[in-house]
Design a protein around this nucleic acid. Structure first.
Length: 376
RNA sequence: GGUUGGGUGGCAGAGCGGUCAAAUGCAACGGUCUGUAAAACCGUCGGGCUUCGCCCUACGUAGGUUCGAAUCCUACCCCAACCA
């Protein structure tokens, strides 16, 4: 049986629903994957994650390597057992930390030298080591070490980053094949597509990923400084050049409008810190747009965060209470807002699936925008 | 009743002749966040305007000294501690 199955495509655009089967777990796309950087979707328990309906979460090799250490995770039976989550787990390679911790690292041909953001200690990541670490973490979907550059990037800078990324991709998949050869239930590995906003570079990146035989495409180097229009243009160009015979994952996308848009272009998978981070910072996503729960207008508001939402938070608590919790610095506000925001995004993907199923994606998208508002 | 120390913006609390519409913190108000170094960060915060500046009202109250007072003097009103 194939592990990646296309269930339905919309006639008028590239939106698509698929089913991914990975090591006895199923992922239905389009899918939103909550981010559990350090083996925890911040503020929510694994029980909450399941209840929210997340089929897959994303964790981070770099962070788990530094703390608690991948050896400990291995000893605990892998990350799923460690954090008591039985859904699928995708791990980011640490490539994003190459970008976000740019002042703490040095890239060489062979890998990346890091100073730990925790204690300053020195570490060296190679493509092979990162594969090893994911083996210890025992995630289901792996990514290779890549070089992510901030936008806007000079062509030469983007090209150089891509060259390294390609080189590392090759080393990664070769080592991946070796290390997973004995495994009965093999994980899958995604290529990270780089190339900034440059068409020839992106094309080259895609072609090379196909040539090397990666299991999926992870679109990197987007939503890292470029304008929305540039991002959409680049995405469209990428999607026109990508064969959809394997999953396409847009790394780090979480704005609801962006997810709708990317799904229209054919993307299957998303992850983002936005719903959880913004929840902790007092912002709730609703079908009528985002709201700041601390704003004075909500302190007397007896309605739920979102009338159209049936998450645990919306079923049980008022905006007035959430406003009070947030302003009082009560930790419960983080949990309740995180549960809601994650539920909101996952619910959006459900709406998308249904619409694609019925061949009405465009209408559903328009309906969403009409209510949500097209202002960011 | 006496002595001493105080009364500063919503609160706490600096300032003790001009650079003060008044530090700082909190509160309040608004915003940012896209493969998490984030329960973080950024604005605004006396009023009014023709708003990269100007005008008005303000540091308990009322007078006074001074070119100039939140800052010095006098009286009064409060508050705190101590002494009768």
């Amino acid at each position: 049986m194939k592990w990646f199955n296309i269930l339905k495509t919309d006639k008028n655009n590239r939106s698509i629903i698929t089913e991914i089967s990975i090591r006895h777990k199923k992922i239905h796309t389009p899918v939103f994957m909550p981010v559990a950087t350090q083996g925890s979707v911040k503020a929510v328990s694994s029980h909450d994650i399941k209840e929210i309906g997340a089929e897959c979460i994303l964790s981070n090799t770099y962070h788990l390597y530094l703390r608690p250490g991948v050896d400990i995770i291995k000893k605990m039976g892998g990350l799923g057992k460690f954090m008591n989550f039985d859904g699928a787990i995708l791990t980011d390679s640490g490539g994003f930390q190459v970008y976000s911790l740019s002042n703490l690292r040095k890239i060489t041909e062979n890998g990346v030298h890091f100073s730990s953001h925790i204690d300053g200690s020195k570490h060296f990541f190679t493509p092979e080591k990162v594969i090893d670490y994911q083996y210890y973490i025992n995630s289901d979907l792996w990514t290779h070490l890549d070089v992510c550059v901030e936008n806007p990037a000079e062509y030469s800078v983007a090209k150089e980053a891509l060259e390294k990324t390609k080189n590392w991709a090759k080393r990664s998949i070769e080592y991946f094949k070796k290390i997973t050869a004995h495994m009965e239930e093999k994980p899958k590995i995604f290529a990270i597509i780089q190339g900034s906003v440059y068409k020839d570079l992106r094309k080259q990146s895609i072609d090379y990923a196909i040539e090397l035989g990666f299991d999926g495409f992870a679109l990197g180097g987007l939503s890292v400084g470029e304008s929305k229009n540039e991002m959409y243009d680049t995405l469209q160009m990428i999607m026109e050049n990508i064969p959809h015979d394997r999953p396409v994952y847009f790394m780090g996308l979480g704005d609801p409008i962006d997810i709708w848009m990317a799904t229209k272009y054919g993307v299957d998978m998303y992850d983002c810190v936005l719903p959880t981070r913004n929840a902790r910072n007092g912002q709730a996503l609703t079908s009528k747009g985002k709201i700041y729960i601390k704003n004075s207008q909500y302190k007397n508001d007896q309605s739920p965060l979102d009338n159209e939402c049936s998450c645990y938070t919306c079923k049980n608590y008022t905006r007035a209470y959430l406003s009070h919790l947030y302003k009082s610095g009560e930790l419960l506000s983080h949990r309740l807002l995180s549960i809601h925001n994650l539920s909101f995004l996952i619910n959006q993907t459900k709406i998308m699936k249904k619409a694609i199923e019925e061949g009405k994606f465009e209408e559903a998208f328009k309906k969403f925008l009409d209510k949500y508002g097209s202002n960011k």
